Amino acid sequence: MADLTQEQWCEQCENDENAVILDVRTDAEFEEGYIPGALQLDIHNSAEFIKKIKELDPNKSYYVYCRSGGRSGQACMLLNSVGVKNAYNLKGGIMEWNGEINN
């Protein structure tokens, strides 16, 4: 797991052909706006979250974010624990995001 600034996270994600953007916030938070192309898996629903991440392709690179960076950090550690080697946490989360947001 690596904590990346928005600049690092964006640059690395754009240049990674195996990139998957993962939003680990709740449904309500996701509906308020999300980074384009993001898949949503609510980390608060822990049993479902673990089940879903075990189904993910471990060879992909996961660029993970939440509201402020805490839950996404946990999510990256959980991804690592199920065999995903490349998990990148967006420091500051969507609260500090300056890029495009879909509603």
Results as ranks from 00 to 15, higher is better:
A19E: 10
G69N: 07
H44Y: 04
Y88Q: 03
Q40C: 11
E17W: 01
N86K: 15
E11I: 06
A19K: 09
S61R: 04
L79S: 08
A38F: 02
S46C: 11
N59V: 05
N103G: 01
E100W: 00
K52P: 01
N18R: 12
N103S: 09
S81W: 00
G37I: 01
A47D: 12
L78K: 13
K85D: 09
D3V: 11
W9P: 10
C10P: 00
E29M: 06
D27K: 14
G93F: 02
G92Q: 08
D57E: 10
I35D: 01
G92L: 04
N103Q: 11
C66K: 06
S68K: 08
S72T: 07
N80Y: 06
Y34N: 13
K52T: 10
E7A: 15
L22S: 03
G83V: 09
Y88K: 09
C13A: 15
T5L: 11
C66W: 03
P58V: 00
L39M: 08
M1L: 11
Q8E: 15
G37N: 07
S68T: 15
C76T: 10
E32I: 10
I94V: 15
D23H: 04
Q12S: 13
Y62I: 11
G99E: 07
N59A: 12
K52G: 02
A38L: 06
W97V: 13
Y34Q: 12
D42T: 02
L39A: 01
N86R: 15
G37F: 00
A87S: 15
Q8W: 00
G73T: 12
S81D: 10
N80S: 14
N103W: 00
E14A: 14
A38C: 03
L78N: 13
Q6W: 00
I43F: 04
H44L: 12
V24S: 04
T5S: 15
E29D: 13
N89R: 03
V82H: 05
D27T: 11
G73H: 12
Q6I: 08
Y62A: 09
D42M: 03
P58I: 00
G83K: 07
K60S: 14
N18T: 14
E7P: 00
